[in-house]
Structures are given as C-alpha cells and as structure tokens.
C-alpha cells in the first residue's frame, strides 16, 4: 500500500466544496490518492460521488477548496487544465465515443492532435491496446456497429492511448446490459493489476471488494467513511454505511 506518510500524493483534494445555488453537492471533501491506489467511491444516488469524480478533472467546476494534481493546483484559473486532463483518463457511463469517427480514429485523434505523435506511432499503440482488449478486428468499425460492452472497452482504450497517470471511471457499467458488465470489469481488473492509479465511481460492490485498495463511502456530499475494502465491507463503522450495505449487498 502506498499510503505511508512522507510520499507525495498523486492527487490531493483539500476541502473541496461544490454548491449548486444553495444546495451543497460537495461539502468539505479532503482525500489523498497515491500512485497505484485503486479508490472506489460508493454511495446512494445524489450523494455527490459523480460530482466529486467530475471535479477531479474540472468537468465540473468546484466552488471552494483545492485539488493538487502532481503537485499543481488545478483549480487555479491560471493553470492550463487541458494539459493536465491529458494525464487523467476519463471513462463515462454513456461511453461518449465519437460516432463520426472509426474506432481507430477515436483512439488516435488525441495522441495525434495533442501529443504530436505520428499517425503510424499512434495507430501502432492503439492496435496494441485493442489487441489486449480483444477488439483489434473492429478497428475500422464505427461506434454504432458495436455492442455496449465493446463500446465501453473502446472508451477505456481511448483514455489509455493518452498514457494517463490516473484513470477516472464514472459508473462505467451502469448503462450496460448485465451480460456485458463482465467484459468491462475484466479490463478494469487488468488495469488495477498493472498498478494503474484509478478512481472508480460504481455500484459494483463485489468488484470493489475484489479490486479496490481503498473504498470511500459518500452521502449528502460528505465523505462518511473511508477504509481498506476488507474492513469497509466486513466491519462498517457508521450507521449510514451499515444501512447502505444492507440494501445493496
């Protein structure tokens, strides 16, 4: 585990708040995420867990507090967020593949346009990763020709092609038919085993128990409990978490 004192966190969230008018979606959140951490964020709907994840790469603008990413405050207006986002892969519930591009183009547009890779280099890397998720034969297909599970695996690969330092997953299996959940989780499991730093918002409790290095429980925009998965699921401390787990497990 990399949570020892003295090491610099990859992401340090300090007193983060997010208000929608009077409603506090995030209320004084502080978290440290170290390299190699696989942090699962769970909680009832409306608990602020997705908002929290989306604040990490500023798809959602926070209204208070700081986020240090690799030592730089990315909530600072002056920082070039586009540069930092390249280091933070994001996977969405609805996949959000670009429908007007082939799979290969979906994967290479970022590296080519943003990292000045040659077409050949970008395509070689994309094909290597496609191979790994078993979709190399669909490189020339369009997203609309793929199943949901395939789309989500491609979406993960699209993020990986940018060589990110952290991967953010926003309910990656919630929009999938049940029989397709497994194939996506398998890819995520591989990533975790490779020590990719991951922050995952999900309802897949079994998967969290199996893969997470840490689990965070959020409710009402606050972090209610945070622990390693064994303790978290077997010996929950707060009543809220006990209550929640009894409903979802």
């Amino acid at each position: 585990m990399n949570t020892e004192l003295g090491k610099t966190p990859l992401i340090e969230v300090m007193n983060l708040t997010k208000k929608f008018h009077d409603l506090k979606a995030l209320d004084d959140i502080s978290v440290k995420i170290y390299e190699g951490d696989v942090v699962f964020v769970i909680g009832p709907s409306g608990s602020g867990k997705s908002t929290f994840l989306r604040c990490l790469n500023r798809l959602e603008e926070s209204t208070g507090g700081k986020i240090l990413f690799e030592g730089i405050d990315i909530t600072d207006e002056k920082c070039d967020i586009d540069l930092h986002r390249q280091k933070m892969g994001m996977v969405f519930q609805q996949f959000n593949l670009f429908p007007h591009m082939t799979i290969l183009k979906n994967l290479t547009i970022g590296p080519q346009k943003l990292q000045n890779k040659t077409k050949e280099a970008a395509e070689a890397e994309a094909m290597r990763l496609l191979e790994r998720v078993g979709l190399a034969d669909r490189a020339q297909a369009y997203p609309s020709q793929l199943s949901g599970g395939q789309k989500q695996r491609i979406a993960i690969v699209r993020a990986l092609c940018m060589k990110p330092d952290v991967m953010l997953f926003d309910e990656p299996t919630s929009a999938l038919d049940p029989e397709m959940v497994g194939e996506v989780l398998a890819v995520m499991r591989d990533l975790a085993e490779e020590k990719m730093t991951m922050v995952v918002v999900t309802h897949e409790m079994g998967f969290a128990k199996e893969v997470a290095t840490r689990v965070i429980f959020m409710a009402d925009g606050k972090i209610m409990e945070e622990n390693e998965p064994g303790q978290f699921f077997e010996h929950p401390e707060s009543e809220r978490l006990k209550n929640f787990l009894s409903k979802v497990l």
């Binding site: 586009d82 994001m90 969405f92 670009f98 346009k113």
Partner: peptide, 25 residues
Amino acid sequence: QGQFEAGRSLGFSYFRTMIYIILPQ
C-alpha cells in the same frame, strides 16, 4: 453534451473540441 465532455476530458481545448468533435456532427 457527453461528446463535449469526452473531447474536453481527452485534453482538447474548447475550440478544438468544437472543430474536431462537435462541428462535424
């Protein structure tokens, strides 16, 4: 809107997201 977020999350600026991803569609 998800298309826009996908573009931005890859690291494309607002303008380039428009050009490469939103406008063609």
